Amino acid sequence: MHRIEVKKGQQVLTDLEAGNCAYIVESGKISVEDRVSSQSSYTVNPGEMFGEYGVIEDAHHYSTAIALEDSLLVVVTQSEIEEKSAAADPMISLFLNFFMDRCHSLTVRNFGTDEQVKKFTSRRKRRETKSQANRTEIVQQFQIKEELQRALENDEFVLHYQPIISLRGGFTAGFEGLIRWQHPERGLLSPFHFIDIAEKTNMIVPIGEWVFQEACKKVGDFNKRAANSRSPEIFVSINVSAIQFGVPGMVECFKEIAKKTKVDVSKIQLEITESILMEDADSAKKMLHELKDFGFQLILDDFGTGYSSLSYLHQFPIDKLKIDRSFTNAMLNDQSSLEIVRA
């Protein structure tokens, strides 16, 4: 996507222009004359869009557009629409694919040359083949997303707490919160059955917030028991998805939950993966420093499986590294693995 500025009276698109993009009005007003719409002329205001989403290659727009005032437009290309459609919520993906196909059909029916029709027909067959292959998966994703939403509403998720033992003292130092789904029909489900789809549909965000809130509530109970038995203080560790890190306001959300539950944030450890550091290092650094300054402990999970190096990690406020099991499993038989774990 990119932005363009147009002056009052400037023509934005014509019938002679290649029709491979859409325009979102960010500011200003655009007058559109449409040769195929039931409404032949209309005004497009901020937050609305115009243009053809998915017309065939080498086809022309069937609309003309002129700026009624100085305007700022966001240009979205056909390839960007297809890319975002593939990564979107299942319902949105189905809608975009349907709408783009209708745009193709409309262009071919009204303005396509024989060669363009031939190209479109070939492309449509390829899309239909791919669509058939993905249709069952998309429907399943949509159904499971609805189930996940209901699961949150009906308190079907539970956290199981796996103890973390101190090898030096032999005592329970903390717990890792592991989510399970108490499905009303399928029984207790591990994350294997739903986390991937939760991430694909962005349901991982509200689910992740629920996990964080439950951990904040539970860590107080653990430490009351520890104090009564004169045991060391307990921490609770939870995993934070890379998708959660991409949501604006994630840090503030965690802060608000922490304040609401009155948790001692130094007893909460947030486990992140190397992908969070690599995808947008500057943004990750800022967010991690905010979390660290608030008092959370930050753990880098599965260290050694990705791209991070010790020289790179000093840029981030990481408190602990969790060595990937591929090293710990082999350390008794492989000297290099043993040295890595020992270091």
Rank of each mutant, 00 (worst) to 15 (best):
D282T: 14
H60N: 15
G9V: 05
I164V: 14
Q244I: 00
R325G: 03
P46C: 07
F99V: 07
C216F: 09
E5D: 12
S266M: 06
D101G: 11
Q140V: 03
P163K: 06
T172H: 05
G51I: 05
G246V: 01
L178M: 12
A173Y: 07
A88M: 10
H289I: 13
K285F: 05
E147T: 05
L94Y: 08
V265N: 04
D70S: 11
K7D: 06
H314D: 08
I165G: 00
D114N: 10
G9E: 06
D302Q: 07
P90Y: 04
D282V: 14
F157T: 03
S131V: 04
M1S: 15
F192Y: 02
K8E: 14
V219E: 12
S311F: 06
Q140W: 00
V117G: 14
I30N: 01
Q162D: 02
Q140C: 02
D101L: 13
V247E: 15
N45F: 02
I81Y: 04
E185R: 10
C216D: 12
D196F: 00
L13H: 02
G54E: 04
N110I: 08
G51L: 01
K218F: 03
F99H: 12
I164F: 05
F194Y: 05
E57A: 12
N97G: 11
T129R: 06
V6K: 07
N45H: 08
I81H: 02
S93I: 02
D221E: 15
T273E: 02
T261V: 14
Q269D: 09
R124M: 04
L313H: 07
G304E: 06
Q141R: 15
T77G: 08
F192P: 00
I164H: 08
I144A: 01
L291Y: 06
E279A: 06
